[in-house]
């Protein structure tokens, strides 16, 4: 099978196997990705993040339905944590989305974090590129359940929704400096529970302090949903598009895309550099001596790192 040709035609098996190669860091996968790259950059990339149990997967399920109703093809990348002990994972986000499993206009891929921090997995960005090239109009990224600091999603998505829950009053205070700063819109899910209006109010107060007093500035809406009962979903989708229109009009989208590109590039250079440097050093007697010295605390790691880099990249 010609993975690239088939993926561009929307062949799900080709796309799935390509994502698998990329997830495993297979160099052939990167070659395929280079060929796909000119066909990317068209999809609207949405991020959904929030604490565990906020109902992210159920929301994604409902949002897929709404987007399909609007005749849009939807790709989903759902990230769940790997066990730090076994390295294994149970990826259960699909459970809520399986009704779409037989819809050819929907593609759901679960990914384990495999030790990557930040709320996503290392290959999430690459999976998004593949789905983009396959022709999905909207790509939804569901992060792992996050607390305060896992904000990598903003570098990936054009529009990010933060999902909150009723009864999170004090938590919202605590989260101020973390994920709450990254929301382009806020969803208070399970809004049929007591305390929903209080959370909405608290979020609004917080956002008022955050938003610049600028006519043109985007004011993140706070929306109430009850995902299990399919309530409030069209408003959420409308808000996604309202945000995108605003970003396009103000030029922020282009800026954000460029920033995302730079971020992607820098991460890639870091990753490839580390791979080459260690690859070149491993097996040499000198490197072994260095590691020995580190273990025995005869050299400090700063000096060791500098020495290694000087040796591979040449002196500064």
């Amino acid at each position: 099978m010609n993975y690239v040709e088939e993926a561009l035609k929307g062949n799900q098996l080709a796309g799935a196997r390509l994502i698998r190669l990329l997830e495993e860091g297979d160099p052939q996968g990167i070659e395929y990705l280079k060929a796909l790259y000119p066909h990317t950059g068209r999809a609207f990339i949405l991020g959904l993040t929030g604490p565990p149990g906020a109902g992210k997967s159920t929301l994604v399920d409902r949002i897929i339905t709404e987007l399909r109703r609007r005749d849009l093809k939807v790709g989903v990348v759902a990230v769940d944590p790997s066990s730090p002990f076994s390295g294994g994972a149970i990826l259960g986000d699909r459970v809520r989305m399986q009704r779409h499993a037989t819809d050819p206009g929907v593609f759901v891929r679960s990914m384990a974090t495999r030790g990557h921090l930040g709320g996503l997995s290392r290959a999430t960005g690459e999976a998004v590129l593949v789905l983009d090239a396959m022709g999905y109009d909207v790509i939804l990224i569901e992060t792992v359940g996050v607390g305060q600091d896992e904000v990598e999603i903003v570098d990936m998505a054009h529009t990010t929704a933060v999902v909150c829950l009723p009864g999170m009053g004090d938590d919202i205070q605590a989260m101020k400096a973390g994920i709450l700063e990254i929301g382009d819109l806020f969803i208070v899910n399970k809004a049929d529970r007591p305390g929903a209006d209080e959370v909405v109010k608290q979020l609004q107060v917080m956002l008022e302090m955050r938003t610049a007093h600028d006519e043109d500035a985007w004011r993140p809406p706070v929306l109430k949903t009850v995902a299990v009962r399919n309530e409030g979903i069209p408003d959420v989708v409308d808000a996604f598009y309202a945000h995108r229109d605003h970003q396009e009009r103000t030029g922020i989208l282009a800026e954000r895309k460029a920033k995302r590109q730079m971020h992607f590039f820098r991460e890639l250079v870091k990753e490839m550099a580390a791979e080459r440097i260690f690859g070149a050093a491993e097996g040499s007697a000198e490197y072994d001596r260095m590691l020995e010295g580190l273990r025995a605390r005869q050299i400090d790691p700063y000096t060791a790192a500098e020495t290694l880099l000087d040796q591979t990249l040449g002196g500064r």
Binding site: S82, S83, S86, G87, G88, A89, I90, L91, G92, R94, V95, R96, Q98, A101, T102, S110, A112
Partner: peptide, 19 residues
């Protein structure tokens, strides 16, 4: 299987062969 290092995708109940 997860405890033994596998990545397990769980689909939930009531799945048809096609799903």
């Amino acid at each position: 299987l997860q405890e033994n290092g596998y990545e397990v995708i769980y689909t939930g109940l009531h799945q048809s062969p096609e799903q």
